[in-house]
Structures are given as C-alpha cells and as structure tokens.
Design a protein around this nucleic acid. Structure first.
Length: 795
RNA sequence: GGGUGCUUAGCUCAGUCGGUAGAGCAUCGCCCUUACAAGGCGGGGGUCGGCGGUUCGAACCCGUCAGCACCCA
C-alpha cells in the first residue's frame, strides 16, 4: 500500500479479468418496480465500496425506473436509506441500468455526487482497510464545498452502519466477507465474469484507490486567484504562458510534432497535487500552530518574522514532502544558483537544448517550462530534443516484470545465454512468468549476446536514432559497429606503421607533392565535414553516423589506404611526404569528427596520431570540431578517382566472374578510349597497375583485331582481359547476357517514356534532357555489348 | 472512444525537393594479398502493407481499408 497521494501519470490502467456482482438493493417505504418486485438490482465491480454508497442512480430517460426516482432504497448490510437519483452519466445498457454511487471512492461517482449534493462517505483507512469505530473518518457532510479538511468527516463507522465484522479488514478481504453475507441474505442476483480496467501504481503494481485526503495543490486552472485576492490565477499566470512559449517558437520541439502532445496535455490540465506522504523529498514549507492555522515561508524563522508570531508560539512543520517532479521543475534554475543572481545563471539560463525521452514530456519538460517561465519570465531552454525509447525485439517497452530488459553492460561486455536467462528470471514480481520469459530469451538470443564495447554501443544508439521513432534494438547492428571500431584501430596501425618516425610533412618549408588520391580524399573530407555539421544541426544522429561510417570505411580505408600504398612504399621523397601528411591529417580529422559518437577508440588513437599531424593537446575532448574548408574541394580529383574506381571495379568484376585469382597479374587491352580516358590512363597508370594488378596495358588502334577477351565497359571505353584459349565461352556469354538484359530492360522503359508526348511536354526540360542523355548512353553500351557478344559467340 | 507514429531486401532500419530504391547484419562465390579473416574482392536478393485518386511521373502528396506500436481518456 503506497499510503501517499500519487499523480495520474503514475497510474497505469490495464484490462483485467474481474467480476460483475449483481446485488439486490431493497426498496424502502413499500415502493415496487414495474414488475412488482420490492428491490432493484445494482451491478458493481467493487462490492466492498457499497458500504460508502450515497445514492443509487438511473438514467433520466430510463422508463424502467422513472417512477422510482426520488424514492429510497435500504442499503444492504448497513441499513442506511439512500435516495434513487437520475443522472445522464448512467449507461442504461450496463448491468441493470441501476448504478450505486460511492462519491468518496470513485472519480465518476465523485462527479455525480457534486452534481447532486451527495455526501462523501469514506469507508477506508489509509491502509485501505474498512474503517472501524475508532477511525475519525466517515461521512463528509454535503456542505463539502472546498476547502474542507479531514476533520469534517464527522461520522463514525458505527453511525454509518458498517457492521463490526468488517472493521479493520483489508478491502479485498472485506469483499469476500460482504459477498458471503449478501449471499446468505439472498441479495446476490448473480455474479458474471467481467473485464475491467484496474488502476495500478506504475512502480509497485498495487491497486490504487481513489481516496479523499488533504493535499497541497498548485492552481493551474483559474483565471483569477482562488482566494479572491487580486491577481491572475494559475491558468493566466502559469498554464497559458507555458502554452504560449511553444506556440510562438520560443521553445521548439524536435521532432516538431511532440509539441502537439505538449499542447494537448496543457490544454486539458488539472490542478497539480504537489504533496506526497513520503519521507524522501523536500519538506513542504508550511507550518501549523495549535489552532491549525497555516503559515508559509522558507523556514520557521522567516515564518515568525513574516507573520509577526511570538517566539513562544509552538509551530509544527507539515510532515509531507513535495512531489519529486515539483522539486525537479526548478532544476534548470537551482543548478545555477537561483534565486541568487549568479554569473552562471546569467550565462547558462536559458540553455540551448534539453535532451529527453517522450515519456517524461509531461512529468518534467512541461513542468520546467511552466514553473521556470513563471519564476523568471524567460524560458528554461530553447529546444527540446525528444529521442525514441529502446524497445525489445518485438517492439515492446522494456520492463523488468516483462523480463525483456537489455542491460547496457551486457551489450558492452557480452553475456552468455544461461546467465542472461538467469538474470531475467530471478527476482520477478510474478515468478510464474519465468518460463515464458526464458522461452522468449532463448528464442531472441540463442547464442547470448556478443561483447561489443562501449564505443560500438554508443555509435549504435546514434545510428538507430532516427527522429520520431523508437528503437528496436538490433544486436546485429551493434556487432557491425564493433567491427567498425576494429577497422579504425587497424587503419590507424597501418598509418602509424608508415608514418611514425617519418617525415609527415609537418615542416611547411619542405616541398610536398600531392597525388590525385591525396587531393581526392582531402576533398571528400571537406564534404563530409559539411554533412556532419548539417546533421548535427538537424539532430540527425543516424545520418551523422551513416555518413562517418561510410567515409571512414568505404572511402578512407577501402580506397584511400590502398591508393596511398604505392606512394608511401615507393614514391619520391616529396610524394611520400605529401601522402604521409594526407594520411595522418585526414585520419586525425576523422577521429575528431567521430569522437562524439565513439569517445574511447578515437581518444586512444588520436593520442598517437595527433603529433604526426602536428596537433598538440592533452586530449581530443578539448580539440575543436572539424570545420569544412570549401576551398579544398577538388572536383577534378574527385572525377578522376571516380573514373579510377569504375575502371578497377570493371577489372575486378571480370576476375570475380571469370574465376581469375585476385593475385594473378593481368594484361589489359583498351578499346575505344576517348582522349580523356587516354589521358587518365597515362596519368594514373601506376596506381591502376598496382591496385588492379596489371602487368601490361595496351591501347588498341581503331579497328584493330581483338583477341578472345572478357569485357568490361567504362562509358564507351572497353576494358578487355585477353583470355587466350582460357576463356570459358559459356561463362562470358552468360555474363554479357546479364548485362545486356539489364540495360535492355531499362532502355525499353526509358524509350517509352521519351516517346510519350505527355512526358516531353509536361516534364521540365532538364529532366527530359537528362532522360535523353541516359537513353543515348544506354544505347551505346548496349551496342558495344552486343558486338562483344557476337565476337565471343564466333570463337 | 480520441490522438500520434509505423508498415521499404530474410532481419533491423535510412530514403532530403515527387524524377529509375540504399545501409548494416544475414546469404552466395573467390581469396589467409605484409593495417584488418570481427577481414578483402565480387555477386544475388525488393509489385516500397492493400485499393483508389492527383500528376508527364508517386516509396514520397490526397483518400480509404488492414495490421502493429505507443500516448491520452
């Protein structure tokens, strides 16, 4: 039993199997139903609360009971007479259409009670036991307009007619006793199975009771002060300004649609109950004198000064504490020394961004905005970044009771299946769920969880953090990013191996020569830096991760390190210097780019790489984040390297599909090279030979005889690998057919589109032009491939 | 009952301005090539949930239906 007030937000209602008791309430004063019965039947899911019934209600248009409205029933077991009233709230189809009204123990009944001036009859103690005669609780007289206090509950259990046998019994025990007694008196018409929403505390799972107590509230709903003094009420002073600051953009939600959730809650807000009956928390700063008079100030001394109380008047402080979220709402202020006007407050309030999950938008975000704006007239932060929640493989929210929690440490360090099962099935609130949990765990993690380390885990979260979407955690992704960590480590080893204790171009006075590959990777780095800045600005950590992963692995490691090898191993001094300088500088910048997502590997590697790149500093953490330098973008180098990559890909595809060992040197023939192709071949010959493993390359004259070859296309240019007797005719024909089929398919579609008058006149000229160019290109490729197919067939 | 989001490759997910669909994992083939086999190189795989509409053109815009998830009552 919680024995404290809690918030609606801390109550979860789920549908559970229960019962619907149909109970006969005898009519008083000789009244009869239309069928001539001397009782009416009331249906309820909470029979124990009938002890606190204040009325029975029927729908005003319900012909069955119209004649009974204003008459009385005799409340079974208690013997009190209570009135039959009419209220629109009653659903005629539910049960018998007669509803017991228990204003002190049900929210709907409370509202009905207010409309009809019914007594509030409390029948429970704070421990949720039926009150006994010594409990000073019971009926609150109908003149219960707030404020009232518990002392207004004047009646005793005895005077309410609550039988002694129930006194002090727990609510659910009492239910059984009451059921039994009703049975023995013939007052149970029937008991049906029934599904109902049961409200439980979200932490403890215990059934929560609506219960009348004295509490402190913050007014959030009144236009003017509740005590009648001049000045705005909470609605004007707190709630409406909190709505306004988001409406007018002083606070922005990212993603933006969370502002709707925020608005909806604030526009339907109720007064805020801020007192809790717990020992942990900030004490309520209110004091009482012997007569129960209330004094509010920061401390007792201030109370005495403020209210001019004599020193010997005994004061006691309220025992209650604040709702933790009420205390937390001034977090942005309190952490900066408020209410003192500290330099920190001046500098950091408002802060730029608050990062949070959507599940505490109500609990915390809204409350900070409300109260801090109220206290200071200025918003606490300018942006609220709302990230998703991590869910289990089925998309369910993680919870210990469901046994689907992933402990971050288990992802970092790994865990065996058996240990994971054990961890998830011990200490359960409902031990009977253990077999189900075990089964699901064995299905989801048949091999346990592989260790991935903190960096990979952090990077995975970033990579999965797409906006407006929860994260279904995927260990496969995390393992992929663990491999990425290894990749960085190994790439760094290569760079260090070739650059440490070498001339890395730190001395600006010495001449350097930059290869096309050097200029290419530097250019690419500038573009990635620009992308990175953009993704940070938009809170797109997923795209940020993607972009860095792609650059470091697919460009820096897969291509640049390979392209750098010839220069580093056998280039001139100036070429070596230029390439070493590029190797270390690009790596160093990449580490800084990546550091926010992978703090540890980047720090470790940076410590050794930074000096080579002429960077000084104790830690990467204090280094500036890389900024793009557009003047270092080199489109010509990028075009050259794109061409080079396509060239090499063509050769590799032939190797792969013709089953030529990657290590075997090849002779290449080049046909139909244009002047640009020829120039590129001449200029990048060394790198082509190295990477594609070419030991001879010859440009064929126009119309020269072509030996048996496998072919790759690069634009109009043909890359031929002579297969002198080795060619597998069938394999090469199949390979060519595959290419031809693909192009034919696309070409047919594209030609049809171009043939359509609708398209050529409707679409923008640029799009049509692009389409024409594409068709021309495809036609040429197709022609070349078909020629090739003819010549191979003829062999 | 009201609201929000989602549905794209076997799995987890990107897809900006409407202009021929991408990544990681998994899978298939070759390779222990002196940074890296937790790797390299190459390949295969998608009627973008269904239906209808707008448009020269739809994964994307509109309508509708279905399924899933979450929030509020």
């Amino acid at each position: 039993m919680l024995q404290t007030a809690i918030s609606d937000l801390e109550v979860v209602s789920e549908e559970e199997n229960g019962k619907l008791w149909h109970i006969r309430y005898p009519l008083a004063d000789g009244a009869k139903t239309r069928e001539g019965l001397d009782y009416i039947v009331v249906a309820t899911t909470r029979p124990e609360t009938m002890l606190g019934d204040a009325a029975v209600a029927v729908h005003p248009e319900d012909e069955r009971y119209k004649h009974l409205v204003g008459k009385f029933v005799e409340l079974p077991l208690c013997g009190r007479k209570i009135e039959i009233i009419e209220d629109e709230f009653v659903e005629r189809e539910f049960g018998t259409g007669c509803v017991k009204i228990t204003p002190a123990h049900d929210f709907n009944d409370y509202a009905v009670g207010q409309r009809h001036g019914l007594d509030l009859i409390n029948v429970l103690t704070r421990e949720a036991k039926i009150i006994g005669d010594s409990d000073i609780q019971g009926r609150l007289r109908s003149s219960y307009v707030a404020p009232f206090t518990m002392e207004d509950f004047a009646d005793s259990a005895l005077s309410l007619g609550i039988p002694k046998e129930y006194w002090g019994h727990d609510r659910f025990e009492a239910r059984l006793l009451i059921e039994k007694d009703l049975y023995s008196r013939g007052l149970i018409e029937k008991i049906d199975d029934h599904k109902l929403k049961v409200p439980r505390g979200d932490r403890t799972g215990v059934v929560v009771e609506p219960y009348l107590t004295d509490q402190w509230f913050v007014d959030l709903t009144r236009e003017t002060r509740h005590d009648g003094k001049p000045g705005p009420g909470g609605l004007k002073a707190i709630t409406e300004p909190a709505i306004r600051v988001v409406e007018d953009g002083r606070i922005k939600f990212v993603p933006e649609n969370w502002s709707n959730t925020y608005f909806h809650w604030l526009r339907n807000i109720q007064d805020w109950c801020i007192s809790r009956q717990l020992w942990w928390g900030h004490r309520i700063p209110a004091w009482y004198d012997g007569d129960g008079k209330i004094y509010v100030a920061r401390d007792e001394t201030e109370v005495r000064t403020k209210y001019k109380l004599s020193a010997n008047l005994a004061l006691t402080q309220d025992e209650d504490v604040f709702d933790t979220w009420f205390s937390s709402d001034i977090w942005p202020l309190a952490t900066l020394g408020w209410p003192q006007a500290t330099p920190e407050l001046k500098k950091f309030y408002p802060s730029s961004v608050l990062v949070t999950g959507f599940d505490i938008i109500f609990f915390w975000i809204a409350r900070m905005v409300m109260m801090d704006t109220y206290f200071t007239g200025e918003v606490p932060f300018r942006e609220v970044y709302v990230h998703g929640l991590i869910r289990d493989p089925e998309g369910q929210k993680m919870s210990k009771s469901k046994g689907n929690v992933l402990d971050p440490l288990d992802l970092v360090d790994g865990i065996s299946l058996e240990d994971l099962v054990k961890k998830r099935t011990t200490g359960l609130i409902k031990p009977e769920t253990a077999p189900k949990i075990e089964k699901a765990t064995r299905r989801d993690y048949p091999n346990g969880i592989a260790p991935v380390g903190v960096d990979a885990l952090r990077f995975t979260f970033a990579a999965l953090a797409s906006p407006g979407r929860d994260i279904r955690f995927d260990t496969g992704r995390a393992e992929g990013y663990r491999n990425f960590c290894n990749k960085i480590w190994n790439a760094a080893r290569f760079v260090l191996m070739n650059c440490e204790d070498q001339d890395c171009g730190a001395d600006a006075a010495l001449p350097v020569e930059l290869s096309v590959a050097d200029r290419w990777i530097v250019s690419r780095l500038q573009k990635v830096e620009a992308e990175t800045a953009e993704h940070f600005r938009n809170y797109r950590f997923d795209l940020l991760a993607q972009s860095l992963y792609q650059f470091i692995w697919n460009e820096y490691c897969d291509w640049y390190l390979e392209l750098a090898k010839p220069a580093v191993l056998g280039g001139s001094d100036t070429a070596k210097r230029g390439t070493r300088r590029t190797l270390v500088r690009v790596l160093e910048a990449s580490l800084r780019l990546l550091h926010p997502l992978m703090p540890f590997v980047t720090e470790e590697v940076w410590q050794r790489v930074a000096p080579l790149a002429a960077k000084r500093g104790d830690t990467i953490m204090l280094q500036p984040y890389p900024v793009t330098q557009p003047e270092r973008i080199d489109e010509a180098a990028e075009a050259d390297v794109e061409w080079l990559k396509a060239f090499i890909l063509g050769v590799r595809q032939i190797r792969g599909e013709m089953d030529i060992s990657p290590g075997k040197p090849l002779q290449l023939l080049i046909q139909d090279a244009n002047t640009v192709d020829a120039e590129r071949i001449a200029r990048m010959r060394g790198i082509i030979d190295f990477i594609a493993r070419i030991d001879a390359l010859q440009l064929l004259e126009q119309g020269a005889a072509v030996p048996q070859s496998a072919t790759a296309l690069l634009g109009a240019m043909k890359i031929l690998v002579p297969m002198a007797g080795l060619i597998d005719k069938g394999a090469e024909l199949a390979r060519l057919d595959k290419l031809i089929n693909k192009i034919e398919g696309d070409l047919a579609k594209n030609e049809a589109r171009l043939a359509s008058e609708k398209f050529t006149s409707g679409a923008p000229a640029a799009v049509v032009e692009k389409e024409r160019a594409r068709v021309a290109q495809q036609k040429q490729e197709l022609e070349t491939l078909q020629q090739q197919k003819t010549s191979v067939s003829a062999l």
